[in-house]
Design a protein around this nucleic acid. Structure first.
Length: 280
DNA sequence: ACTCTGTCTCAAGACGGG
DNA sequence: TTGAGACAGAGT
DNA sequence: CCCGTCC
């Protein structure tokens, strides 16, 4: 569930920042159920989620309710986009995730026995899982509030980008740089703490990014793959600077691979970069 | 000297009273 | 989970 | 700004 599909700022209370600071570009990652997840993790009192009389969690509803009101107050009309099915995940990743989870459960039990409140909180958070019910409850709330939402066929980020590209919304709000790779004309970062005065909303223009990097959509996608995305590995030893330099010189991953010194850089075996490229 | 990796840390929402 | 920031250490 | 409260 990506947190914000999109927005129509009426009066620009949206500060603009145009420059794309390349070296700070984080590795793109899919952060699917981020809002929901964050609310469940953060909205707590004494280590517990807020609940109704029957003990059912209400943290996520509180979070969505207040955040949406705040956006409306600021003239922003959100359209929420929920994640559909994510693309296949490698069984290795799933196993790792399961192992981490099990480890956290063990640690939680230890902390409980030792009565270490801090650790109890820590591991409880680590075990938070977003359920189907959480999703439907939030959707119900949004319906009652008259706030539109869509369920994406696959990844929310891709859907956000599509909505923005089609001109249905002002932009795609996400922390995830992949949204840009999916081709949203405008990416809004830090929408969540806009009024929270920590960081200004960061408006990134796809066009200006391409211009600034002197890249085409195609080379930009290749760049993002080189930097590491969720769909495949990246090449060890190649970070932002080298990736950019190499693409400037060779224009595509294929050409780079052909000229890369195999003694210095090892490319992952059966590297599915082409497949990753298709997904963008 | 610069770039990249690994490892560590920390926080994670929103509100309002004082 | 994620992201950010800081830092040490190794590779180019 | 900090910190307790929200359920």
């Amino acid at each position: 569930m990506a947190c914000g599909g999109a927005a129509f700022p009426r009066r620009a209370s949206v500060p603009r920042r145009r420059r794309f600071q390349f070296p700070k570009l984080p590795k793109p990652r899919i952060t699917a159920s981020m809002c929901l997840y964050q609310f469940l993790i953060a909205v707590r009192s004494e280590g517990q989620n807020l609940t109704n009389e029957d003990g059912e969690t209400t943290s996520h509803l509180m979070g969505f309710f207040y955040r949406t009101l705040r956006m409306m107050d600021n003239g922003i009309k959100p359209i929420y986009v929920f994640d559909g099915k994510p693309p296949q995940m490698k069984s290795g990743e799933l196993a790792k995730r399961g192992a981490r989870r099990a480890a956290a459960e063990v640690s939680l039990k230890e902390a409980q026995e030792a009565g270490e409140q801090e650790n109890i909180d820590k591991y409880t958070r680590r075990l938070v899982r977003v359920t189907k019910e959480h999703n439907t409850e939030v959707q119900q709330l949004l319906t009652l509030m008259g706030i539109p939402f869509v369920v994406a066929p696959a990844e929310a980020e891709a859907q956000c980008a599509a909505l923005a590209a089609a001109g249905k919304v002002y932009g795609a709000a996400s922390e995830d740089m992949d949204t840009l790779t999916f081709g949203t004309p405008t990416l809004l970062r830090h929408m969540t703490y806009s009024e929270n005065r920590k960081k200004p909303i960061n408006e990134v223009s796809y066009e200006q990014v391409l211009e600034g990097l002197e890249m085409t959509k195609e080379t930009f996608v290749d760049l993002c793959i080189l930097l590491g995305c969720d769909y495949c590995e990246s090449i060890r030893g190649i970070g932002p600077h080298r990736a950019l330099a190499l693409l400037r010189e060779h224009q595509s991953i294929e050409n780079i691979l052909a000229s890369l010194d195999p003694d210095k850089f090892t490319v992952p075996e059966d590297w599915p970069y082409a497949e990753a490229r298709r997904l963008f």
